[in-house]
Simulated assay, not measured.
Amino acid sequence: MNQKDSLEFNNKTVPDVIWREAYIALSHYPELKNVPIEFRFKKNIKKSFMQAQPKVGDFLKAKGKRSYFVNMSERFSIEGKEFDLTNVASDVLIGWIGHELGHIMDYRDRSALAMAWFGLRYITSRRYLKEAERAADTYAVNHGLGEYIIATKDFILNHADLSEKYKNRIKTLYLSQEEIIDLVEELKDED
């Protein structure tokens, strides 16, 4: 995929192939309207399909001045099963993007020192990794993306070619479908 085949809107850069899904996910996060985010394809993202992170050059900037990458694999492999971004259902992709935007919501109010501490704990502590992933899911659900997060979980958990070990990792680190439904119901009750 050519990185030049991208659209720019509202200080966001998005590859053409996912512009619709990115636009839908971003529309649920009005707080990110003025936050520069570049969606880009990257090879060799370990253990994931997408990954949100602050741009390295912006890491030491004030919280409100940072910009972010959402790195994505155009093709990704889970346990030897190859997936192509263009073959993933739109609602699943919106859920994945919404989850990554949840990480950016979590990052945006952290100081540089807090971000460094977050990164260290994220890669060294399974308990903290679980907290961070569940927080990103919660941000997404609280921003109206519950049905998309459920679609993403359903895609992973009900895919026959994926092992129980991988599925159990997802079940352990992320919100369950039941927890997501409960959050959605709580939001409805608040309205």
Rank of each mutant, 00 (worst) to 15 (best):
N158S: 09
E79G: 10
K167L: 09
G64C: 06
K33R: 15
K46M: 13
W19I: 13
S163F: 08
L145G: 00
G102T: 07
S125D: 12
E74L: 05
N71R: 11
F41P: 00
T152Y: 09
L101D: 04
P15W: 09
I170T: 10
V184A: 10
S48C: 15
P15M: 13
A52T: 10
K130F: 07
S73Q: 15
I123A: 15
E179P: 01
V141L: 05
P36K: 07
S90A: 11
K61S: 15
F76L: 10
N168Q: 15
F118S: 00
I18W: 06
G57T: 07
L157Q: 09
V88N: 05
I180S: 00
E131A: 11
S90M: 12
D5K: 14
F155C: 05
I149Q: 07
Q177K: 15
S27L: 05
A62K: 14
T13D: 06
R66G: 02
A116H: 02
L162N: 04
T13M: 12
R66N: 06
L7Y: 11
K188M: 08
P54E: 06
A136Q: 08
E164N: 12
K42L: 11
K167H: 08
E147A: 11
E190C: 07
E31H: 09
K171D: 03
I94K: 01
R134P: 02
S77I: 14
R121S: 09
D137G: 08
N142E: 15
K33I: 13
G144W: 06
Y148P: 01
K81N: 11
E164T: 14
A116Q: 08
S67Y: 06
L187W: 02
A151N: 10
S176D: 03
E74G: 08
